[in-house]
């Protein structure tokens, strides 16, 4: 279903930030992962119940670069400012992959600002037995099978000879490298996840080849009272592949 996204630009502490919005209702913020290809129309069902905000992180999509943003905490601070600008008080937060890392870190510090939290295949934890894949080791032409079980759900593949696509992918990889070239987790996160005090849902594709579904046990142990829902067959981009996963988010947030 095509969503009529409205696009706005905000100056957030000097960084031009593009925010897409659609729908009506309580505010729901979706924080994307390390890639922005394919768009966000899989969120369509949520726009029926919520006003959905999809901000592009600095360094991604239509938001400007900020080379000084090198830690997850920089993104947490960025979003505190954006929330103030948008005059959003309490809100629902959904974070996917790298966005889940941001969202979980945000929640350890600002649970009072949240209604509920959803983490979809979140990055950010080191689970030695089930390590997160190193995205920098995966060749772009070999990436798609890492992302999904049903490749058709990702839409038509990008043209590798499209210079604009190549340049933007490089730019987003650069933003990701600033944050995660050395490691795609925060060794201290387990120490603080118990600070999350809002109802939390963890969503995973059971065949996730980027952040293995087996990590969900560690997350659910560390976030008290959280629940896990898994979907199969589905990979890392479970929300693209499984409409029922999006539906589960809606049900959790409205319950």
């Amino acid at each position: 279903m095509a969503v009529q996204w409205q696009s706005e630009l905000h100056e957030v502490n000097g960084v031009t930030t593009q925010v897409l919005t659609a729908g009506r209702g309580e505010p729901l913020m979706f924080w994307h992962g390390a890639g922005t290809g394919g768009g966000w129309d899989f969120l369509a069902p949520l726009t029926e119940e919520f006003k959905v905000f999809v901000p592009y992180h600095p360094g991604w999509g239509g938001s400007a670069d900020d080379t000084s943003m090198t830690t997850v905490q920089d993104y947490v601070m960025h979003y505190l400012e954006l929330l103030d600008l948008l005059k959003i008080g309490k809100f629902n937060l959904v974070g996917l992959s790298m966005g889940g890392w941001f969202a979980s870190t945000f929640a350890t510090q600002h649970s009072l600002r949240l209604k509920k939290l959803v983490l979809v295949a979140p990055a950010g934890l080191r689970v030695k037995e089930h390590p997160t894949a190193d995205l920098f080791r995966i060749k772009p032409e070999e990436l798609a099978p890492y992302l999904a079980e049903n490749l058709a759900a990702l839409g038509p593949p990008p043209d590798p000879h499209d210079v604009d696509f190549v340049v933007n992918s490089y730019r987003e990889a650069t933003s990701f490298a600033r944050l995660a070239w050395e490691r795609v987790y925060d060794v201290k996160l387990p120490k603080y996840l118990h600070r999350i005090s809002v109802p939390t849902l963890l969503i995973w594709g059971r065949q996730d080849k980027i952040v293995p579904e087996a990590q969900s046990a560690t997350w659910s142990k560390l976030i008290k009272g959280s629940t896990v829902k898994t979907f199969a067959p589905a990979g890392h981009l479970v929300l693209n592949e499984k409409p029922e996963a999006v539906k589960a988010i809606g049900e959790f947030l409205t319950a």
């Binding site: 920098f136 210079v163 190549v166 340049v167 490089y170 650069t174 490298a177 070239w181």
Partner: peptide, 15 residues
């Protein structure tokens, strides 16, 4: 050209 090694302007020229 690992991520960030060159500017996007330089990458565009290289591409």
């Amino acid at each position: 050209a690992p991520p960030g090694y060159i500017s996007t302007e330089q990458l565009r020229l290289r591409a």
